[in-house]
Amino acid sequence: MSNILTIARLTVLEMLRRRLFLVLLSLTLLVIAFTSWGFGQITTIGTRPITRVEQVGVVSQLLILVGFMFSFTLAFSAVFAGAPSLSGDVESGTALAILARPVARTEYVLGKWVGVVITILVYAIPTTALQLFMVNLVVQYVPPHPFEFVGFISLEAVVILTLALALSTRLAGMVGGVVALILWGVGWIGGIVGGVGIALNNTTAQHVGTATRLILPTDGMWRGAIWALEPEGVIAATRAAGPALASNPFFAAEPPEALYLAWTVAWIAVGLGAAVWIFTRREV
């Protein structure tokens, strides 16, 4: 256990010293400041003042777009942090001196994972919370499930970084990173295809959506984050409009089922187990 913490601490320190964390945080704070100012400008529709109901509708939908930016940034950051984490150490030779110590490969992989997860969560939780706080400060709007939003978006980042770390056991950082991002994109598109399947009542497309959400649960978590930001009024209005809006990648009427959340957690555990299994058997 102490070796896991040592490697985790080393990984967090690397993120800090390499300024990844600083750059991410600085840019994100700029975006939060900019979007908060933007939300404050939504005071009219045409020339007439906006009503409170209209303001909530517009702000909630814009907040979902900002949420997608967080989802996107977190996925990319998780990939850039996870993809070279093991392969980079092996290629550079820094892993040689460490693994020649009484350190188990399992401890090394788990330590790396814990370090990257800590870094990503330390970035994700305060910044998303700050974004929601600023929106509330500027337009007095709190989405219906703010904690769930932070939770789902963080879980999405953990899924993609686990995938990137598992790929890092065998693939060079750049290759693993590209593969992870493509899969993340495929997962997102797969979710849209599933929605189109619902809209068109096409079972094949629905199955494609279900399959991609099972194979890589990032889009499933993103849908959970959308649901967390969606006001009840918008959900009711959209439901009334029929199934056609199910294909909208920025709309979700329901949260992920508990079974799907369990599947996501199991997916992370299996991905991490696979990373340990592969890395334990590779030559360094």
Binding site: E14, R18, G93, T94
Partner: peptide, 10 residues
């Protein structure tokens, strides 16, 4: 190691 590399940021 023959390939001696240590963490440049430490």
């Amino acid at each position: 190691p023959e390939l001696f590399r240590y963490q440049g940021w430490l």
